[in-house]
Design a protein around this nucleic acid. Sequence first.
DNA 1: AGCCTCATGTAAAATGTTACATGATTGA
DNA 2: TCAATCATGTAACATTTTACATGAGGCT
Lengths: 178, 178
Amino acid sequence: MRTLKYAILGLLSREDMTGYDIAKIFNAELANFWNAKHSQIYPELKRLTEEGLVTFHVVVAGDVLEKKMYSISERGRKELHTWLIKDELLEPTPKDKFRLRAYFGDQMDTQDLCQLVESQLRQRRLKLEFLSQRLSEYVKVPKAGTDRFGDYILLEGAVMREETYIAWLEKVQGYLLV
Amino acid sequence: MRTLKYAILGLLSREDMTGYDIAKIFNAELANFWNAKHSQIYPELKRLTEEGLVTFHVVVAGDVLEKKMYSISERGRKELHTWLIKDELLEPTPKDKFRLRAYFGDQMDTQDLCQLVESQLRQRRLKLEFLSQRLSEYVKVPKAGTDRFGDYILLEGAVMREETYIAWLEKVQGYLLV
DNA sequence: AGCCTCATGTAAAATGTTACATGATTGA
DNA sequence: TCAATCATGTAACATTTTACATGAGGCT
Protein backbone atom coordinates (compact mmCIF):
# COMPACT_ATOMS: atom_id res chain seq x y z
CA MET A 1 0.00 0.00 0.00
CA ARG A 2 2.81 2.36 1.05
CA THR A 3 0.54 5.30 1.75
CA LEU A 4 3.35 7.25 3.39
CA LYS A 5 5.09 7.19 0.05
CA TYR A 6 2.17 8.97 -1.60
CA ALA A 7 1.71 11.39 1.26
CA ILE A 8 5.32 12.48 0.78
CA LEU A 9 5.07 12.58 -3.01
CA GLY A 10 1.94 14.68 -2.65
CA LEU A 11 3.66 17.22 -0.44
CA LEU A 12 6.63 17.37 -2.80
CA SER A 13 4.26 17.87 -5.72
CA ARG A 14 3.31 21.17 -4.11
CA GLU A 15 6.82 22.39 -3.45
CA ASP A 16 10.38 21.30 -2.76
CA MET A 17 11.18 20.70 0.86
CA THR A 18 13.41 18.89 3.34
CA GLY A 19 12.54 15.87 5.43
CA TYR A 20 12.31 18.18 8.39
CA ASP A 21 9.74 20.34 6.60
CA ILE A 22 7.70 17.26 5.76
CA ALA A 23 7.75 16.18 9.39
CA LYS A 24 6.53 19.60 10.45
CA ILE A 25 3.60 19.48 8.05
CA PHE A 26 2.69 16.02 9.30
CA ASN A 27 2.29 17.60 12.69
CA ALA A 28 0.33 20.61 11.45
CA GLU A 29 -2.13 20.73 8.51
CA LEU A 30 -1.81 17.08 7.64
CA ALA A 31 -2.33 16.00 11.24
CA ASN A 32 -6.08 16.07 10.55
CA PHE A 33 -5.85 13.02 8.30
CA TRP A 34 -2.27 11.74 8.23
CA ASN A 35 0.87 11.74 10.31
CA ALA A 36 4.33 10.23 10.57
CA LYS A 37 7.41 10.73 12.70
CA HIS A 38 10.74 11.78 11.32
CA SER A 39 12.09 8.31 12.05
CA GLN A 40 9.74 7.00 9.40
CA ILE A 41 10.09 9.91 6.98
CA TYR A 42 13.88 9.91 6.54
CA PRO A 43 14.13 6.23 5.57
CA GLU A 44 11.18 6.63 3.21
CA LEU A 45 12.83 9.60 1.48
CA LYS A 46 15.95 7.51 1.06
CA ARG A 47 13.91 4.74 -0.51
CA LEU A 48 12.05 7.13 -2.81
CA THR A 49 15.40 8.49 -3.95
CA GLU A 50 16.64 4.98 -4.73
CA GLU A 51 13.45 4.37 -6.67
CA GLY A 52 13.98 7.53 -8.69
CA LEU A 53 10.71 9.10 -7.59
CA VAL A 54 12.38 12.04 -5.89
CA THR A 55 15.75 13.77 -6.15
CA PHE A 56 17.54 16.03 -3.73
CA HIS A 57 20.32 18.53 -3.69
CA VAL A 58 22.26 19.64 -0.68
CA VAL A 59 21.75 23.17 0.51
CA VAL A 60 24.16 24.69 2.98
CA ALA A 61 22.51 26.79 5.66
CA GLY A 62 24.77 29.04 7.70
CA ASP A 63 28.38 27.87 7.66
CA VAL A 64 28.24 24.10 7.85
CA LEU A 65 24.73 22.70 8.22
CA GLU A 66 23.65 20.65 5.24
CA LYS A 67 20.01 20.20 4.35
CA LYS A 68 18.66 17.89 1.69
CA MET A 69 16.15 19.73 -0.43
CA TYR A 70 13.91 17.16 -2.10
CA SER A 71 12.05 17.52 -5.42
CA ILE A 72 9.57 15.16 -7.01
CA SER A 73 10.64 13.65 -10.34
CA GLU A 74 8.48 13.20 -13.44
CA ARG A 75 8.13 9.52 -12.60
CA GLY A 76 7.20 10.42 -9.05
CA ARG A 77 4.50 12.74 -10.30
CA LYS A 78 3.14 10.01 -12.55
CA GLU A 79 3.02 7.44 -9.74
CA LEU A 80 1.35 9.94 -7.47
CA HIS A 81 -1.31 10.60 -10.10
CA THR A 82 -1.95 6.90 -10.62
CA TRP A 83 -2.48 6.47 -6.90
CA LEU A 84 -4.65 9.56 -6.55
CA ILE A 85 -7.25 8.52 -9.11
CA LYS A 86 -7.38 4.93 -7.85
CA ASP A 87 -10.77 4.32 -6.31
CA GLU A 88 -10.67 2.16 -3.22
CA LEU A 89 -13.13 0.42 -0.98
CA LEU A 90 -13.94 2.03 2.34
CA GLU A 91 -11.24 1.42 4.90
CA PRO A 92 -12.18 -0.20 8.18
CA THR A 93 -13.32 2.42 10.66
CA PRO A 94 -10.32 3.78 12.51
CA LYS A 95 -9.69 2.71 16.08
CA ASP A 96 -10.76 4.99 18.89
CA LYS A 97 -9.62 4.30 22.43
CA PHE A 98 -12.15 6.57 24.02
CA ARG A 99 -15.04 4.90 22.24
CA LEU A 100 -13.65 1.55 23.33
CA ARG A 101 -13.65 2.74 26.95
CA ALA A 102 -17.16 4.12 26.60
CA TYR A 103 -18.36 0.82 25.16
CA PHE A 104 -17.36 -0.90 28.39
CA GLY A 105 -18.83 1.90 30.47
CA ASP A 106 -21.01 -0.51 32.42
CA GLN A 107 -17.83 -1.74 34.13
CA MET A 108 -17.34 1.59 35.90
CA ASP A 109 -19.34 3.90 38.12
CA THR A 110 -21.47 6.37 36.23
CA GLN A 111 -19.46 9.11 37.94
CA ASP A 112 -16.18 7.84 36.52
CA LEU A 113 -17.65 7.64 33.05
CA CYS A 114 -19.04 11.17 33.46
CA GLN A 115 -15.59 12.45 34.29
CA LEU A 116 -14.05 10.79 31.25
CA VAL A 117 -16.72 12.33 29.04
CA GLU A 118 -16.17 15.72 30.66
CA SER A 119 -12.45 15.50 30.03
CA GLN A 120 -12.97 14.54 26.39
CA LEU A 121 -15.34 17.44 25.96
CA ARG A 122 -12.83 19.93 27.34
CA GLN A 123 -10.09 18.69 25.07
CA ARG A 124 -12.22 18.45 21.96
CA ARG A 125 -13.74 21.88 22.45
CA LEU A 126 -10.28 23.36 22.58
CA LYS A 127 -9.34 21.54 19.42
CA LEU A 128 -12.51 22.67 17.68
CA GLU A 129 -11.85 26.26 18.68
CA PHE A 130 -8.41 26.06 17.14
CA LEU A 131 -9.70 24.52 13.91
CA SER A 132 -12.60 26.96 13.61
CA GLN A 133 -10.18 29.83 14.06
CA ARG A 134 -8.08 28.55 11.19
CA LEU A 135 -11.13 28.02 9.01
CA SER A 136 -12.43 31.51 9.67
CA GLU A 137 -9.25 32.93 8.18
CA TYR A 138 -10.58 32.00 4.76
CA VAL A 139 -12.82 34.81 3.53
CA LYS A 140 -14.23 32.59 0.82
CA VAL A 141 -13.97 29.05 -0.53
CA PRO A 142 -10.82 28.78 -2.68
CA LYS A 143 -11.33 27.78 -6.30
CA ALA A 144 -11.38 24.03 -7.00
CA GLY A 145 -8.22 22.79 -8.69
CA THR A 146 -5.94 24.86 -6.46
CA ASP A 147 -3.98 23.52 -3.52
CA ARG A 148 -5.74 26.07 -1.31
CA PHE A 149 -8.97 24.26 -2.13
CA GLY A 150 -7.48 21.06 -0.73
CA ASP A 151 -6.41 22.88 2.43
CA TYR A 152 -9.86 24.36 2.79
CA ILE A 153 -12.08 21.33 2.32
CA LEU A 154 -9.93 19.22 4.62
CA LEU A 155 -10.06 21.87 7.31
CA GLU A 156 -13.79 22.12 6.88
CA GLY A 157 -14.05 18.34 7.17
CA ALA A 158 -11.99 18.40 10.35
CA VAL A 159 -14.25 21.04 11.88
CA MET A 160 -17.38 19.10 11.02
CA ARG A 161 -15.93 15.91 12.42
CA GLU A 162 -14.95 17.60 15.65
CA GLU A 163 -18.36 19.24 16.03
CA THR A 164 -20.02 15.87 15.63
CA TYR A 165 -17.75 14.18 18.13
CA ILE A 166 -18.64 16.91 20.61
CA ALA A 167 -22.34 16.61 19.84
CA TRP A 168 -22.11 12.89 20.51
CA LEU A 169 -20.28 13.42 23.81
CA GLU A 170 -22.93 15.92 24.88
CA LYS A 171 -25.63 13.44 24.02
CA VAL A 172 -23.94 10.74 26.10
CA GLN A 173 -23.55 13.24 28.91
CA GLY A 174 -27.25 13.96 28.70
CA TYR A 175 -28.12 10.27 29.03
CA LEU A 176 -25.83 9.95 32.04
CA LEU A 177 -27.22 12.95 33.89
CA VAL A 178 -30.82 11.81 33.77
CA MET B 1 -0.16 0.54 25.60
CA ARG B 2 -1.58 -2.89 24.69
CA THR B 3 -5.06 -1.69 23.91
CA LEU B 4 -5.94 -5.02 22.32
CA LYS B 5 -5.44 -6.56 25.73
CA TYR B 6 -8.13 -4.35 27.23
CA ALA B 7 -10.46 -4.77 24.28
CA ILE B 8 -10.33 -8.51 24.85
CA LEU B 9 -10.66 -8.23 28.64
CA GLY B 10 -13.65 -5.96 28.10
CA LEU B 11 -15.40 -8.48 25.89
CA LEU B 12 -14.67 -11.29 28.34
CA SER B 13 -16.02 -9.14 31.16
CA ARG B 14 -19.39 -9.36 29.42
CA GLU B 15 -19.37 -13.09 28.84
CA ASP B 16 -17.16 -16.11 28.31
CA MET B 17 -16.18 -16.76 24.73
CA THR B 18 -13.66 -18.33 22.39
CA GLY B 19 -11.01 -16.55 20.34
CA TYR B 20 -13.14 -17.18 17.32
CA ASP B 21 -16.10 -15.43 18.97
CA ILE B 22 -13.89 -12.45 19.81
CA ALA B 23 -12.70 -12.22 16.23
CA LYS B 24 -16.29 -12.23 15.03
CA ILE B 25 -17.24 -9.36 17.32
CA PHE B 26 -14.22 -7.39 16.14
CA ASN B 27 -15.72 -7.62 12.70
CA ALA B 28 -19.24 -6.73 13.79
CA GLU B 29 -20.26 -4.37 16.64
CA LEU B 30 -16.75 -3.46 17.63
CA ALA B 31 -15.76 -2.70 14.06
CA ASN B 32 -17.08 0.83 14.62
CA PHE B 33 -14.21 1.67 16.94
CA TRP B 34 -11.83 -1.29 17.17
CA ASN B 35 -10.72 -4.31 15.20
CA ALA B 36 -8.16 -7.07 15.10
CA LYS B 37 -7.55 -10.21 13.07
CA HIS B 38 -7.51 -13.68 14.53
CA SER B 39 -3.75 -13.81 13.96
CA GLN B 40 -3.41 -11.10 16.57
CA ILE B 41 -6.13 -12.34 18.90
CA TYR B 42 -4.91 -15.90 19.47
CA PRO B 43 -1.40 -14.92 20.56
CA GLU B 44 -2.83 -12.20 22.80
CA LEU B 45 -5.14 -14.71 24.50
CA LYS B 46 -2.16 -16.96 25.08
CA ARG B 47 -0.29 -14.08 26.66
CA LEU B 48 -3.24 -13.05 28.83
CA THR B 49 -3.47 -16.64 30.04
CA GLU B 50 0.23 -16.64 30.95
CA GLU B 51 -0.31 -13.38 32.80
CA GLY B 52 -3.20 -14.86 34.75
CA LEU B 53 -5.71 -12.31 33.51
CA VAL B 54 -7.87 -14.90 31.78
CA THR B 55 -8.42 -18.63 32.09
CA PHE B 56 -9.88 -21.14 29.68
CA HIS B 57 -11.33 -24.58 29.66
CA VAL B 58 -11.63 -26.84 26.69
CA VAL B 59 -15.08 -27.56 25.34
CA VAL B 60 -15.61 -30.39 22.92
CA ALA B 61 -18.02 -29.60 20.10
CA GLY B 62 -19.29 -32.57 18.11
CA ASP B 63 -16.99 -35.57 18.34
CA VAL B 64 -13.47 -34.18 18.25
CA LEU B 65 -13.33 -30.40 17.75
CA GLU B 66 -11.88 -28.63 20.76
CA LYS B 67 -12.70 -25.03 21.55
CA LYS B 68 -11.06 -22.93 24.23
CA MET B 69 -13.70 -21.11 26.22
CA TYR B 70 -12.07 -18.11 27.89
CA SER B 71 -13.14 -16.39 31.12
CA ILE B 72 -11.79 -13.23 32.71
CA SER B 73 -10.14 -13.68 36.12
CA GLU B 74 -10.53 -11.42 39.14
CA ARG B 75 -7.13 -9.91 38.40
CA GLY B 76 -8.15 -9.40 34.80
CA ARG B 77 -11.26 -7.58 35.88
CA LYS B 78 -9.21 -5.36 38.16
CA GLU B 79 -6.72 -4.47 35.43
CA LEU B 80 -9.55 -3.74 33.04
CA HIS B 81 -11.13 -1.38 35.52
CA THR B 82 -7.85 0.43 36.14
CA TRP B 83 -7.48 1.00 32.41
CA LEU B 84 -11.08 2.02 31.91
CA ILE B 85 -11.05 4.88 34.40
CA LYS B 86 -7.65 6.15 33.23
CA ASP B 87 -8.12 9.52 31.58
CA GLU B 88 -5.93 10.04 28.55
CA LEU B 89 -4.98 12.88 26.28
CA LEU B 90 -6.64 13.05 22.89
CA GLU B 91 -5.09 10.63 20.45
CA PRO B 92 -3.73 11.95 17.17
CA THR B 93 -6.50 12.13 14.58
CA PRO B 94 -6.74 8.79 12.80
CA LYS B 95 -5.40 8.45 9.29
CA ASP B 96 -7.80 8.64 6.40
CA LYS B 97 -6.65 7.69 2.92
CA PHE B 98 -9.57 9.29 1.18
CA ARG B 99 -8.99 12.62 2.90
CA LEU B 100 -5.33 12.37 1.94
CA ARG B 101 -6.31 11.89 -1.70
CA ALA B 102 -8.77 14.76 -1.51
CA TYR B 103 -6.11 17.01 -0.03
CA PHE B 104 -4.05 16.54 -3.19
CA GLY B 105 -7.10 16.97 -5.39
CA ASP B 106 -5.44 19.76 -7.37
CA GLN B 107 -3.19 17.09 -8.92
CA MET B 108 -6.13 15.50 -10.76
CA ASP B 109 -8.88 16.60 -13.11
CA THR B 110 -11.97 17.86 -11.35
CA GLN B 111 -13.85 15.03 -13.07
CA ASP B 112 -11.63 12.37 -11.51
CA LEU B 113 -12.04 13.92 -8.07
CA CYS B 114 -15.81 14.07 -8.63
CA GLN B 115 -15.88 10.38 -9.35
CA LEU B 116 -13.92 9.54 -6.23
CA VAL B 117 -16.31 11.63 -4.16
CA GLU B 118 -19.28 9.96 -5.84
CA SER B 119 -17.89 6.53 -5.06
CA GLN B 120 -17.28 7.43 -1.43
CA LEU B 121 -20.82 8.74 -1.16
CA ARG B 122 -22.29 5.53 -2.52
CA GLN B 123 -20.33 3.39 -0.10
CA ARG B 124 -20.90 5.58 2.92
CA ARG B 125 -24.64 5.89 2.30
CA LEU B 126 -24.89 2.13 2.25
CA LYS B 127 -22.99 1.91 5.49
CA LEU B 128 -25.14 4.58 7.08
CA GLU B 129 -28.30 2.77 6.02
CA PHE B 130 -27.03 -0.38 7.69
CA LEU B 131 -26.12 1.43 10.90
CA SER B 132 -29.38 3.38 11.04
CA GLN B 133 -31.29 0.16 10.59
CA ARG B 134 -29.51 -1.35 13.57
CA LEU B 135 -30.07 1.77 15.66
CA SER B 136 -33.77 1.85 14.87
CA GLU B 137 -34.14 -1.58 16.44
CA TYR B 138 -33.82 0.06 19.83
CA VAL B 139 -37.23 1.30 20.88
CA LYS B 140 -35.71 3.44 23.61
CA VAL B 141 -32.34 4.38 25.05
CA PRO B 142 -31.12 1.54 27.32
CA LYS B 143 -30.46 2.44 30.94
CA ALA B 144 -26.97 3.72 31.75
CA GLY B 145 -24.83 1.17 33.57
CA THR B 146 -25.96 -1.72 31.37
CA ASP B 147 -23.97 -3.21 28.54
CA ARG B 148 -26.86 -2.42 26.20
CA PHE B 149 -26.23 1.24 26.97
CA GLY B 150 -22.66 0.84 25.69
CA ASP B 151 -23.93 -0.83 22.53
CA TYR B 152 -26.44 1.91 22.01
CA ILE B 153 -24.31 5.01 22.47
CA LEU B 154 -21.53 3.61 20.31
CA LEU B 155 -23.97 2.80 17.56
CA GLU B 156 -25.43 6.25 17.83
CA GLY B 157 -21.93 7.73 17.63
CA ALA B 158 -21.20 5.68 14.54
CA VAL B 159 -24.38 6.90 12.85
CA MET B 160 -23.59 10.52 13.66
CA ARG B 161 -20.05 10.15 12.38
CA GLU B 162 -21.22 8.58 9.15
CA GLU B 163 -23.85 11.27 8.61
CA THR B 164 -21.23 13.94 9.04
CA TYR B 165 -18.81 12.28 6.66
CA ILE B 166 -21.58 12.17 4.08
CA ALA B 167 -22.52 15.80 4.71
CA TRP B 168 -18.90 16.75 4.16
CA LEU B 169 -18.68 14.77 0.92
CA GLU B 170 -21.86 16.44 -0.32
CA LYS B 171 -20.43 19.82 0.51
CA VAL B 172 -17.26 19.05 -1.43
CA GLN B 173 -19.39 17.80 -4.30
CA GLY B 174 -21.27 21.07 -4.24
CA TYR B 175 -18.05 23.06 -4.50
CA LEU B 176 -16.91 20.93 -7.42
CA LEU B 177 -20.13 21.21 -9.41
CA VAL B 178 -20.21 25.02 -9.37
C1' DA C 1 -19.47 -34.91 -2.28
C1' DG C 2 -18.81 -30.21 -1.81
C1' DC C 3 -19.17 -25.79 0.35
C1' DC C 4 -19.46 -22.68 4.06
C1' DT C 5 -18.62 -21.72 8.67
C1' DC C 6 -16.30 -23.00 12.88
C1' DA C 7 -11.91 -23.28 15.11
C1' DT C 8 -6.89 -22.55 16.16
C1' DG C 9 -2.63 -21.53 15.33
C1' DT C 10 2.31 -19.73 13.17
C1' DA C 11 5.49 -17.00 9.99
C1' DA C 12 6.85 -13.27 7.51
C1' DA C 13 6.40 -8.75 6.20
C1' DA C 14 4.86 -4.07 6.69
C1' DT C 15 4.00 -0.22 9.46
C1' DG C 16 4.52 2.69 13.31
C1' DT C 17 6.53 4.34 17.94
C1' DT C 18 10.06 5.33 21.25
C1' DA C 19 14.56 5.84 22.29
C1' DC C 20 19.23 6.71 21.08
C1' DA C 21 22.61 9.80 18.83
C1' DT C 22 24.66 13.93 17.03
C1' DG C 23 25.42 18.54 15.87
C1' DA C 24 24.32 23.46 13.82
C1' DT C 25 21.61 27.83 13.83
C1' DT C 26 18.97 31.51 15.70
C1' DG C 27 17.45 34.71 18.88
C1' DA C 28 17.02 36.35 23.67
C1' DT D 1 25.58 31.75 27.15
C1' DC D 2 21.52 29.32 27.06
C1' DA D 3 17.43 27.48 25.11
C1' DA D 4 14.61 26.48 21.37
C1' DT D 5 14.48 25.06 16.95
C1' DC D 6 16.62 23.22 12.83
C1' DA D 7 18.42 19.12 10.78
C1' DT D 8 19.40 14.10 9.92
C1' DG D 9 19.82 9.72 10.92
C1' DT D 10 19.67 4.60 13.26
C1' DA D 11 18.08 0.85 16.55
C1' DA D 12 14.93 -1.53 19.11
C1' DC D 13 10.51 -2.46 19.96
C1' DA D 14 5.46 -2.79 19.36
C1' DT D 15 1.62 -3.33 16.48
C1' DT D 16 -0.76 -4.83 12.49
C1' DT D 17 -1.49 -7.27 8.09
C1' DT D 18 -1.08 -10.98 4.89
C1' DA D 19 -0.09 -15.40 3.99
C1' DC D 20 0.57 -20.09 5.27
C1' DA D 21 -1.35 -24.26 7.50
C1' DT D 22 -4.66 -27.55 9.24
C1' DG D 23 -8.81 -29.79 10.29
C1' DA D 24 -13.86 -30.51 12.10
C1' DG D 25 -18.91 -29.60 11.84
C1' DG D 26 -23.22 -28.67 9.54
C1' DC D 27 -26.00 -28.49 5.64
C1' DT D 28 -27.54 -29.55 0.82
